[in-house]
Amino acid sequence: MRALAQVVAEADDRGGTRLTVLRGESPLLVRRTGGRSGPGATVHLVGGAAGPLRGDDLRMEITVGAGAALTVRSVAAQLALPGRPAPPSRLTIHAEVAGTLRWLPEPLIAAAGCDHCTETRVEVAEGGELLWRDDLVCGRHAEPSGDARLETTIRYAGRTLYRHALGVGRHADGWDGPAVLGGGRAVGTVVAVPGFAGSLPASAGAALMPLAGPGVLATAVGPDIRQVRAALDPLCEPVEEARGGNESTLPPWRAEPQAATAIGTP
């Protein structure tokens, strides 16, 4: 399956954000959600088919113009599944950010037998702001991890700020050893430019790391996604949303992380 999704967010003349392009193809469907009163726009990724499956070639292009603010979330985890013998499934994400982009999707789950590669390239213009989160769960409950590779490049003002690759599964030597993920089956990273508004709860499995350029990385590793969320969610969710409780303000699909379904599973 091949699909292209495009989102272009631009500042309107009333201090808000309008989406001048919002286009997707199954399984990468995009929907505008949330109210239109605030300064920013929110888009949810809604899957239109199971997967990604082997052989899928998906591409997502995001542009956030100066003065615009866009938040991208997904309604369910992305479940990479095995399929017929075919090249690895591939998701290529390219974002150009002059305004503010918050990329906060649900985790990628590498189901046993999958072979998946996510390649991310983000160009942040000088003065642009970014929150870029990637959570990965290595296998569904009590199953071995499939093969998944994440290749991430984040650039700021024309210089590479963060370059990171992570491979898990049979073809990634030593990935479950104590140098990489140890016994952890979930890992999450968030890159924030210029930095985080929130703070990281003290945890032996997480750290906040100022990058050499502008920006900060938060990384968390845990036995499952709950520990990763406990560490990273407070950094990513603005105080307004979290006020007056914690779980209750999260959308219902955030309450049961392990019950996540494949993008697009009807």
Binding site: A172, D173, G174, W175, D176, G177, P178, A179, V180, G182, G183, A204
Partner: peptide, 25 residues
């Protein structure tokens, strides 16, 4: 740091550590 965190205790753990370190860093 990994010894202190209890992730590396014996020879087998050291091997797993070294394999992962070689394949990454």
């Amino acid at each position: 740091a990994q010894v202190a965190a209890g992730r590396v205790k014996d020879l087998a753990d050291v091997y797993a550590f070294l394999r992962g370190k070689l394949a990454t860093g």
